[in-house]
Design a protein around this nucleic acid. Sequence first.
DNA 1: CGGGCTCTTGAACGTGATCAATAAACGTGG
DNA 2: CCACGTTTATTGATCACGTTCAAGAGCCCG
Lengths: 254, 254
Amino acid sequence: MQDSPAFRRLSELIDLTPQGRNYLLALLASPVELAARRKLLDEHRPCDSIFLVLSGWVQLFRQLKDGGRQVLNFRLPGEVFGIESLLYRRSLYSCQALTNASIAQISHNMFEATQQEFPRLASAFLLTAVKDGAIHYEWAVNLGRRPAFQRIAHLFLELERRARMSLASPDDDVHLPLTQQHIADCTGLTVPYVNRILQQMRALQFLEYGPQGLTILDGKRLAVAAGFEPDYLEVSWQTNWQRHVPENAPEEAG
Amino acid sequence: MQDSPAFRRLSELIDLTPQGRNYLLALLASPVELAARRKLLDEHRPCDSIFLVLSGWVQLFRQLKDGGRQVLNFRLPGEVFGIESLLYRRSLYSCQALTNASIAQISHNMFEATQQEFPRLASAFLLTAVKDGAIHYEWAVNLGRRPAFQRIAHLFLELERRARMSLASPDDDVHLPLTQQHIADCTGLTVPYVNRILQQMRALQFLEYGPQGLTILDGKRLAVAAGFEPDYLEVSWQTNWQRHVPENAPEEAG
DNA sequence: CGGGCTCTTGAACGTGATCAATAAACGTGG
DNA sequence: CCACGTTTATTGATCACGTTCAAGAGCCCG
């Protein structure tokens, strides 16, 4: 558990103390188990928790009046969502599981307590929102300016990378559990057109479809074909401002 | 100055103490003056500051290899940008002034000091990133799912509202200093097509063009025509978690 | 065996892009 | 105050990327 995706991903943002890690461990006890296709959140509904995915994939999306959907982002193991509920006290999007998923729920009350006792840990949660910003910028470019093939390619390459980050050994095979409907809802395209683009990608040996979802076969070539530059996904290692965040954890008080 | 846009906007997020306000006042002394059309930041370049717009408008955008641009957002008086540099130590976008602008620059060092002495104030800065998230969700829906007319309408209605937030009296007229190029770069459309849509909007008396930019004449009707729902722009007033953020400011230590 | 999902295919259509040319507005220096 | 270069707005004709609608096939799971 100490080497779970949750720890790995939050540790990118802030240097957790052993006490902070233990505290986090307690926060993650008793997660919600969510079956594939089940909804966890409905947009506009009151919400007083933030969430952290322990395993499985979920999608965050907006439901449009005309029946359409826009996927705002996916959440993979180790990723946080629902931070905005701290400000808005409601959910800004719906959340639905793509696969069976296990999701830790941290109430605002618990988060406030964390803020007091382990400000660094709390900051790590807030900083995930900052990091999300970088991803959203990339998506805006994708949706606004790139043709369908590149849009889909960028999505796949980003998700493959994020999926790899939550793995223990970075060389394991990665499968993206996406349907063509998810891809369409996320790239602003329609299912039939996504289907046609995927056929091209398969013909070019960029990827293949399996029972567990799709697999990138040749990420390098695909990245070149699509002009993908992934530096926005990696935080400059050990930013130094974290050293200045006071940590009034037990070890320092005693 | 105590009633400047900067104070008004940050106070939406956190309850600033008088000491915090004074400290902020000091942070905002000696802003950078930026002439219209001048660039302040270049994407990928190292950056060790965060910024707060005191007056004027700027755009944050990405420059594409093919010469195109995608505007990621605008920043109006009272709004913060460059928070991501805390994590990435570089700028993720270029920043250029639309009008003459005055911009406060807060180095990471100064921000770290703020974090120690006025954690609430520092939190207010971090929370602007959370609030931005809500805006980016809306933009993703806009870019991914809405036709040109609605896209442009949503942009205008959001910006008009944000512009109004930074005014002392909320009933003053608001002018959006946008060229058709800005609108195109932001909505993922082309300039000629934006032009055609604007002609429709003018024909329908939704807006007019003046020397200071465009003015919304009938926001209500335009909002209905475009299905605009602005609740994502307003924070649920006085979230209660802020009361639990420790503030080791002078008044409480003494 | 039946009912959803998911994937696939075809034909016609339309929103918005592209390219090119012109006109108007503006600021700046001579 | 005018001349000029630059930025911004406008218009037309053509083109294409991606949509729409509809139908059928495969598949998984109860």
